[in-house]
Design a binder for these strands. Structure first.
Lengths: 200, 200
DNA sequence: GTCTATACGCGGATAGAC
DNA sequence: GTCTATCCGCGTATAGAC
């Protein structure tokens, strides 16, 4: 925290930062507004000078994440005509998605949590997954258009791939732990999604 | 509800049934005990004559599910020496897992929800995923023992597969909807996990 | 903008009659 | 076992001084 004093000077930023930490440790729904203000070292009432509600704060965090993520992606270019059957290209895609997710775990998980809490019957979960894997779907449709035959409907395959990635990203203990390295996870998923269990 | 009168006669059963419906529609954490009793047509106080808390009720539902699931599995035999690179055997495994999950969506989702709410930092999510995919891991270790080379560490591959399945099972709208049929999902996942995007 | 103090409502949990 | 009635803590949100 030493070098970041000037950044944390803004209360809004301090609240966002505290929220991310609290969401990660206690879950989004479990986290009370008083937990956030306490962790940020501010008074309860100050929260409402910056955000209308916890939900509102989450939207702000989400906006931050999107801005950062699409900057990252745009920076390295992203034409539609990728060939995902190529190991390196597939790996590059998985790596970007993995890193964005892991870097924004608190926000990703919070959104996920609130989506489940909204009720599975709402269909909201599917809609979100479909949206989040839209780019992947386009790549698959491009492949199919070139005559390659896919394991199934592009949207379904894309959702399966995205779901796998998200499930692992949520489950893996956040850094440290006796876990796997990012590279090991990415390599494994690349191999599995490219060639399956049967292998080459 | 007509033919099930005798079953619903027991208040405990009625509460469980109502809970499943409420969990599915409003999520586990969102569902209040009064929601459950109201949906079951009982008084609030009656709840505590059967369960100590909502958490306790969830454990009961979980026990029911486990009993039913392991009966299903035991019935069709389950030796450790399966060959998951064989399309039919892989498909059979995925089909059983998919059907158990889908048949018990409310319970699966509730457990998942409370696991996320416990905080990602707790590592609980990973532990659960690892446990739930233990059988799969054993099959993979068997394969590896026979000289087959896997996409990565067996526990990690098993977790990836289980995570993919669970992510889709949660996201797919519960029946009806403009969605995919169970068979289509199972076929797609079988192909993807067996041969990957590159195909045979 | 930030604080302290407080009002208010929701929901978990219990007491006690039937 | 089931009900009605009620208590009480917790968390949200606001009022108002600084």
């Amino acid at each position: 925290m030493g070098l970041r004093k000037e950044r944390a000077a803004g209360t809004a930023a301090a609240l966002k930062d505290a929220a991310r930490r609290q969401f990660l440790e206690h879950g989004y729904l479990n986290t009370k507004i008083t937990d956030i203000t306490a962790a940020a070292g501010r008074a309860t009432g100050s929260f409402y000078d910056h955000f209308a509600s916890k939900e509102d704060l989450l939207q702000a965090l989400l906006a931050d994440m999107r801005a950062q993520a699409s900057a990252d992606i745009a920076q390295q270019g992203h034409p539609r005509d990728h060939d995902l059957t190529d190991r390196e290209q597939l790996r590059a895609h998985l790596a970007v998605a993995w890193r964005v997710m892991r870097a924004n775990l608190p926000v990703m998980a919070a959104v996920h949590e609130s989506s489940i809490a909204a009720g599975l019957a709402s269909g909201q979960a599917w809609q979100r997954l479909a949206e989040d894997t839209g780019m992947l779907r386009e790549h698959l449709e491009y492949l199919r258009g070139r005559g390659h035959d896919l394991p199934g409907d592009p949207a379904l395959v894309a959702a399966a791939m995205g779901g796998m990635l998200a499930a692992l990203a949520f489950a893996m203990p956040p850094s440290g732990a006796p876990g796997y390295s990012d590279d090991e996870v990415i390599d494994t998923l690349t191999s599995l999604l490219r060639s399956g269990l049967a292998g080459r």
